[in-house]
Amino acid sequence: MEKRTDKNSYTIIFAIGMVLIVGALLAYLASALKPMIQENERLEKQQNILYAMGVNENEGTSANFVSTEDAPKLFGQYIKKQLVIENGSVAEDTTAYLIDVKKEQAKAKAGKTRRLPLFVGEKDGKTFYIAPIRGKGLWDAIWGYVALDENMVVQGAYFDHKGETPGLGANIKQRFFMDDFIGEHLLNANGEFKGITVAKGNGDPKNNDKLDNEVDAIAGATITGDGVTVMIKKDLKLYLPYFNKLKNK
């Protein structure tokens, strides 16, 4: 005898019912939790930007942000100006840090002008110019913030990723990798934009040579490393006109 659960009509009704229930449940949860998730993401951006300019709670070899409670206060304290560069003109915008770099990159691809956020921070009398970057790793998106001085020398970097392999590509957000960028020059000796290459076997594992436009790569994470190279080259080059103007002032 055929079981009740083998009937086609039962199968279809079950499938429809299940989809409705699961769909409704997930949609409800997603919309109920959305404000909290967005708030978390907003604070994280502030923490990332502050991290890049050296306002963090690093201990030993692990990278630690300032706490989420302190982030808005410290962000207001250290970030003096938030700029948006559009078509060469610079404007101040106090919500520049909320600009979605992914959307702006899509805009540029579609032939429209891209808004470039830049954050000017000050700490211990030094000025930092912090720019967001975004690119592709092995599996998914990678992104970060790079703090520069007026000569385009890296003062600090923060990288993050969506789904790089734990233990390999995911290590781009470890301090041993991010700290290697500090002091590296984006320009070469002739003042041309060179970027920073994540290089395999550059014979400089301790990263003593800050002028070679190279940092040591992570073993087993070649494609993620190449992604970092590309996003630094592509996205930071867009800020070159701004820095050129800054120098000629």
Binding site: M18, V19, I37
Partner: peptide, 27 residues
């Protein structure tokens, strides 16, 4: 569970569980 679509039902259960956990943790 209808036996003809049991694999899909199983997949939905895992996916739903994981997404719920992920959303709650994110919040």
């Amino acid at each position: 569970i209808p036996s003809k679509i049991r694999i899909i039902v199983q997949l939905i259960v895992v996916a739903t569980l994981v997404i719920i956990v992920d959303l709650v943790l994110k919040a």
